[in-house]
Design a protein around this nucleic acid. Structure first.
Lengths: 161, 161, 161, 161
DNA sequence: TTTT
DNA sequence: TTTT
């Protein structure tokens, strides 16, 4: 009925821009969001690493302007999808589908002129191809967003807009 | 830095109240949150099933008043934890740690007097024991929230408050 | 840069549907939102009364389905506008411009099938006229939303979409 | 029932720290929050100026670290209060009562180490007095937060915590 | 001016 | 694995 998320954190890597077979842009990145408390003795885990997905025009803007380490605000909704891994086990993936992303730090270190771009009506398909390259270090079973140099296998019927 | 989630949905089952070894109450339930759009042809998946965790006094209030099917509002933050399953693979679990829960439907069907309870300073430990029973059908490796009739294995150092 | 509000409360009156000179639907209502605490001795003020404005298709849906007393969730942004009253003093009006409204109670008292309607791309102008009537008791200088039987004086340039 | 606001914007002035007669710290500032759209021809109003109030420990932290122009995230709830101006007219004031404030820019221009402080259980009364001075340029009828050099007239019964 |  |  209602599903709203707002996060502020830093990118753990540069964003990954991909295209669906129909040429729809989709960008994925992960935000490290510091937890508000100090975990008493353990001291090990102090941030949540939350995957974010953007589509269409917003995907391309994020790919162009966001970089590893940048402080970023994200607004969107939680989505849970699942797939079967190669042991036949169902794996659940929870992601934030963002419709609004604010760049709280710009490239020039003196950040008084931060940009801000939001999603919405824009469709903004700007060509096919795949601007991504060479970050194939993750386990394909663990992460369906793995970049294998080919358009990702998402039916356009699955698009949330 | 900032991590805020607000959901409105319906419980997929009755909530599960457990206690940590130190006697801290923790309640888990899942909200079915209808998606805002109609997934064109497929028509199969139209809701997200989002796990929610509450602690202490709020946990006990939720266990007492929430039931399967009830429309409920939840406010909290996203938390990602991980554990190793029995194939040695790391499994990530994403949950909402709620600090505010609103009961939008009460038990009497005419719901003009809905309750509302929030978390906070309350500590509200009300005894040990385990009021839960007999729903051991899930794979323990898949879900550490599995009810095995014993207090759950969470160190009190892990408590987020 | 980012401006997000989520409220759950009850309508203090039936909603008011108006039309701009260009025929754009706009509906206003007020939500009574109970405060989370008990104001110690005074005990008088226990809710905030927060004005909400919706536009276009969402305005017409709200006017059709919302009624005084109904529990309702609203998502939107805070907007502050000002006007000069007849003593030449600037008066500030703070409203929630809603883009998503959820009806948590339906007309039939057994509320298991609540509706839910959100804003967005819809334009949904459904005729001119003014379905409103006879509530002219407020001071025009105090409230530009006063219903005087004529289309309200809002330039279409002021529309937030 | 539920009342949640999240804003990101810039301070229009340095924050104002005051104390109630009972010595409780309260800090007020205004956030300029840019609107997400371009108001077609008029071009005049492109931001909302939203008053924010913080209490106790959080008030003192804000007074110490926030400055005019700083990019800041605020989380809280909307509160509407009223008073009678000297023409006997009731004036409504809408403010955000913040319980979490994030400093997205630190004093040193290279802002890689932004601070972040949240409210909560802290009580943090650190003395009486009034650290504020000389900004009495606003109309008292317009702004009950006007600094007149004396503790403000708020009964401790009015405190929201 | 206010809702349950 | 799922709610209305």
């Amino acid at each position: 009925m209602l599903n709203r998320v707002i996060l502020i954190g830093r990118l753990t890597r540069d964003p990954e821009l991909r295209y669906t077979p129909a040429g729809v842009a989709v960008t994925q990145f992960t935000l490290a969001v510091d937890r508000p408390f100090v975990s008493s003795q353990s001291k090990e885990r102090e941030a949540d690493f939350i995957p974010v997905v953007t589509w269409r025009q917003l995907a391309e803007t994020c790919a162009n302007y966001l970089r590893k380490g940048r402080l970023t605000a994200v607004e969107g909704r939680i989505q849970v999808r699942s797939y079967d891994n190669n042991e036949g086990r169902k794996v659940y993936v929870t992601e934030i589908i963002a419709d609004n992303v604010r760049f709280l730090e710009s490239s020039n270190s003196g950040n008084r002129e931060e940009g801000s771009y939001s999603g919405g009506s824009g469709n903004g398909y700007s060509g096919g191809g795949n601007s991504n390259s060479g970050r194939n270090t993750r386990d394909q079973q663990q992460d369906p967003f793995l970049d294998d140099g080919k358009p990702i296998d998402i039916s356009d019927d699955d698009l949330p807009f």
